[in-house]
Simulated scan of single mutants.
Amino acid sequence: MIKEWATVVSWRNGEALVECDVKASCSSCASRAGCGSRVLNKLGPQTSHTIAVPSAEPLVAGQKVELGIAEASLLGSALLVYMSPLVGLFVLGAIFQALFGHDLAALCGAVLGGVGGFLLARGLSPKLASRSEWQPIIISVGLPPNLVRVDDASTESRP
């Protein structure tokens, strides 16, 4: 189970809207000056994701929850998204090369196969996303923010 903490934005009718912060993997790496992942993380404008998660327990805004998703569903979705365009690229490129015997035809077949694989993944993903085992679940719930009180010790016992 892959776990991540999220903050509740709202709760209504058994469904919690939670926000997960995107963590950059380069914050503490020694080679962050020359890292390509750091540059790619800076390009993306989105720093948080908002998703709806079923929750029978009432939650309040600002409350922390731990979400979990099965590894198999994450691996299955990554396989669908990455491998279907790649397989389409190689298969149609090889078929066009065998049929027409020209590199330009192989290039056109590869492009068509890659686009076709992408469209296949795009069409299948809503059907797979509706499966219950592919949905994130709430594993644990933190205290509501109004129940947590922090007292400053330096201001309590001043004469």
Rank of each mutant, 00 (worst) to 15 (best):
V8Q: 00
R32E: 15
K64L: 01
K23T: 07
L43R: 10
L80Y: 01
E19K: 03
L43M: 15
P54S: 03
R12M: 15
P45G: 10
N13R: 09
E4C: 15
E66R: 03
A94R: 06
P58G: 06
L120I: 13
S77F: 07
E71N: 05
S154C: 08
I95P: 01
T47P: 02
H102A: 12
A121C: 07
G88M: 00
G116N: 03
T47C: 09
L43N: 10
C26R: 00
V87M: 06
V53H: 00
S37D: 09
P45H: 05
L120D: 11
W5I: 13
A105T: 09
S48P: 01
L119N: 03
L80T: 01
E15N: 11
N41T: 13
S31F: 04
L120Y: 11
R32I: 08
G116V: 02
R12A: 12
L119H: 05
I139G: 06
K127Q: 13
P45M: 08
A105N: 03
S140G: 12
V91N: 07
E4D: 13
R131H: 14
D103E: 14
I139F: 04
R12I: 12
V18I: 03
E4W: 06
A105L: 04
T7R: 13
P159K: 14
E19D: 09
L107M: 09
K3R: 13
A70T: 12
A110F: 08
L43C: 12
N146H: 15
S31Q: 11
V87S: 04
A33K: 04
E4M: 15
G14E: 05
H102N: 14
